[in-house]
Amino acid sequence: MSLAPSVPTELDERFRRAAGAEHLLDVRYDLIDSPIGPLLLARSTRGLCRIEFDPEPERAAEQLARTFGLRVLRTPGGLDSERSQLDEYFRGDRTDF
Protein backbone atom coordinates (compact mmCIF):
# COMPACT_ATOMS: atom_id res chain seq x y z
CA MET A 1 0.00 0.00 0.00
CA SER A 2 2.16 2.81 -1.24
CA LEU A 3 -0.50 5.40 -0.47
CA ALA A 4 -0.10 4.95 3.26
CA PRO A 5 1.33 8.07 4.90
CA SER A 6 4.74 7.55 6.47
CA VAL A 7 5.20 7.07 10.17
CA PRO A 8 6.48 10.37 11.62
CA THR A 9 10.21 10.14 12.34
CA GLU A 10 9.66 11.10 15.96
CA LEU A 11 7.23 8.25 16.48
CA ASP A 12 9.51 5.82 14.69
CA GLU A 13 12.42 6.73 16.94
CA ARG A 14 10.24 6.64 20.04
CA PHE A 15 9.29 3.06 19.27
CA ARG A 16 12.91 2.08 18.64
CA ARG A 17 13.95 3.55 21.99
CA ALA A 18 11.05 1.87 23.81
CA ALA A 19 11.96 -1.51 22.31
CA GLY A 20 15.47 -1.14 23.71
CA ALA A 21 14.30 0.18 27.06
CA GLU A 22 11.93 -2.77 27.51
CA HIS A 23 14.72 -5.27 26.89
CA LEU A 24 12.87 -6.85 24.00
CA LEU A 25 15.79 -6.95 21.59
CA ASP A 26 18.33 -9.66 20.83
CA VAL A 27 20.49 -7.16 19.00
CA ARG A 28 20.47 -3.41 18.62
CA TYR A 29 22.57 -1.75 15.98
CA ASP A 30 23.34 1.71 14.70
CA LEU A 31 25.24 3.32 11.87
CA ILE A 32 27.82 5.92 12.81
CA ASP A 33 30.36 8.08 11.05
CA SER A 34 34.01 7.59 11.88
CA PRO A 35 37.33 8.88 10.53
CA ILE A 36 37.58 5.71 8.47
CA GLY A 37 34.05 5.98 7.03
CA PRO A 38 30.65 4.68 8.09
CA LEU A 39 30.56 1.89 10.65
CA LEU A 40 27.83 -0.43 11.77
CA LEU A 41 27.96 -1.20 15.49
CA ALA A 42 25.86 -3.99 16.97
CA ARG A 43 25.32 -5.06 20.53
CA SER A 44 23.74 -8.32 21.67
CA THR A 45 22.48 -9.00 25.17
CA ARG A 46 26.06 -9.94 26.07
CA GLY A 47 27.86 -6.89 24.72
CA LEU A 48 29.32 -5.48 21.53
CA CYS A 49 29.03 -8.21 18.93
CA ARG A 50 29.92 -6.62 15.61
CA ILE A 51 31.75 -3.71 14.07
CA GLU A 52 31.38 -3.62 10.34
CA PHE A 53 33.32 -1.35 8.03
CA ASP A 54 31.64 -0.15 4.87
CA PRO A 55 28.43 -1.82 6.05
CA GLU A 56 25.52 -3.20 4.10
CA PRO A 57 22.85 -2.75 6.75
CA GLU A 58 20.21 -4.99 5.12
CA ARG A 59 22.48 -7.98 4.90
CA ALA A 60 24.05 -7.29 8.28
CA ALA A 61 20.65 -7.25 9.99
CA GLU A 62 19.78 -10.67 8.58
CA GLN A 63 23.14 -12.12 9.55
CA LEU A 64 22.79 -10.77 13.07
CA ALA A 65 19.31 -12.27 13.24
CA ARG A 66 20.56 -15.73 12.26
CA THR A 67 23.39 -15.56 14.78
CA PHE A 68 21.91 -13.86 17.81
CA GLY A 69 18.12 -14.00 17.45
CA LEU A 70 15.45 -12.48 15.23
CA ARG A 71 14.72 -9.42 17.29
CA VAL A 72 17.23 -7.16 15.61
CA LEU A 73 16.46 -3.45 15.47
CA ARG A 74 18.32 -0.29 14.57
CA THR A 75 18.24 1.97 17.62
CA PRO A 76 19.61 5.42 16.83
CA GLY A 77 21.71 6.57 19.75
CA GLY A 78 21.33 3.18 21.37
CA LEU A 79 25.05 2.43 21.26
CA ASP A 80 26.38 5.74 22.48
CA SER A 81 28.80 4.28 25.01
CA GLU A 82 30.42 2.04 22.40
CA ARG A 83 30.48 4.98 20.07
CA SER A 84 32.27 7.26 22.50
CA GLN A 85 34.83 4.54 23.22
CA LEU A 86 35.51 4.33 19.51
CA ASP A 87 35.76 8.12 19.31
CA GLU A 88 38.41 7.99 22.05
CA TYR A 89 40.22 5.27 20.14
CA PHE A 90 40.27 7.29 16.94
CA ARG A 91 41.50 10.37 18.83
CA GLY A 92 44.34 8.28 20.21
CA ASP A 93 43.09 8.49 23.81
CA ARG A 94 42.34 4.80 24.05
CA THR A 95 44.25 1.69 23.06
CA ASP A 96 42.12 -1.08 24.45
CA PHE A 97 38.45 -1.85 25.13
Binding site: M1, A4, P5, S6, V7, L11, D12, L25, E58, R59, A61, E62, Q63, L64, A65, R66, L70, R71, V72, L73, R74
Partner: peptide
Protein backbone atom coordinates in the same frame (compact mmCIF):
# COMPACT_ATOMS: atom_id res chain seq x y z
CA UNK B 1 20.56 -13.58 1.30
CA UNK B 2 20.92 -16.52 3.64
CA UNK B 3 17.76 -18.61 3.73
CA UNK B 4 17.41 -21.45 6.18
CA UNK B 5 13.80 -22.00 5.26
CA UNK B 6 11.90 -21.04 2.12
CA UNK B 7 9.89 -18.52 4.15
CA UNK B 8 12.11 -17.83 7.10
CA UNK B 9 11.22 -15.06 9.51
CA UNK B 10 13.14 -11.90 8.62
CA UNK B 11 15.08 -9.80 11.11
CA UNK B 12 12.57 -7.72 13.06
CA UNK B 13 14.00 -4.57 11.51
CA UNK B 14 12.81 -5.69 8.07
CA UNK B 15 9.40 -6.78 9.27
CA UNK B 16 9.00 -3.41 10.98
CA UNK B 17 10.22 -1.36 8.00
CA UNK B 18 7.94 -3.18 5.64
CA UNK B 19 4.75 -2.76 7.63
CA UNK B 20 5.09 0.33 9.82
CA UNK B 21 3.53 2.78 7.37
CA UNK B 22 0.43 0.79 6.55
CA UNK B 23 -0.06 -0.20 10.18
CA UNK B 24 0.14 3.44 11.20
CA UNK B 25 -2.42 4.33 8.54
CA UNK B 26 -4.66 1.48 9.70
CA UNK B 27 -4.49 2.62 13.32
CA UNK B 28 -5.13 6.23 12.36
CA UNK B 29 -8.33 5.16 10.67
Amino acid sequence: MMMLHPVSVPAFEHFYEEHRDEIFAHLTR
